[in-house]
């Protein structure tokens, strides 16, 4: 049973057990435009909540991807390095960025659930 939570910086984290899959939301990919480059961390790297975990670039914009919660990077999606367009085509599926082994699941409580995020997004646009 997975549960997805969202940040105000438009990252999502889909939690299954101790591991969360992190990516950017559909709203975020639309704001950026065609993604042309991603920079992913190395597996094994420890990241604190809110710290820069990856970088995503389109032609005219660049953005950090922040860790929604603290954890250790256990896997990265190297497919999006070769095909950055996957981030646009399928942000919540094939366009995921990295998997985090979550250090403190209590931090998830600070994040928005889907309903809260959707209303946050409608206030952004």
């Amino acid at each position: 049973m997975s549960e997805t939570r969202y940040t105000k910086d438009h990252e999502y984290i889909r939690v299954e057990g101790d591991v969360g899959t992190v990516g950017i939301t559909d709203f975020a990919q639309k704001q950026l435009g065609d993604v042309v480059f991603v920079e992913l961390p190395q597996a094994g790297k420890a990241v604190a909540k809110g710290a820069e975990a990856a970088v995503v670039e389109s032609v005219k914009a660049a953005s950090e991807v922040y860790a929604p919660v603290s954890g250790e990077v256990v896997d990265v999606n190297s497919a999006i390095e070769g095909q950055p367009g996957l981030v646009n085509e399928d942000p919540s599926g094939k366009g995921w960025f990295l998997k985090l082994k979550i250090t403190n699941k209590a931090e998830l409580a600070d994040l928005m659930d889907e309903a809260a995020y959707n209303s946050f997004v409608s206030s952004c646009s």
């Binding site: 042309v36 480059f37 670039e57």
Partner: peptide, 14 residues
């Protein structure tokens, strides 16, 4: 002009 995300007008302090 390409790979402009390296440049100041997009990346600013980075």
């Amino acid at each position: 002009l390409t790979l402009s995300t390296r440049e100041q007008h997009i990346r600013r302090d980075k």
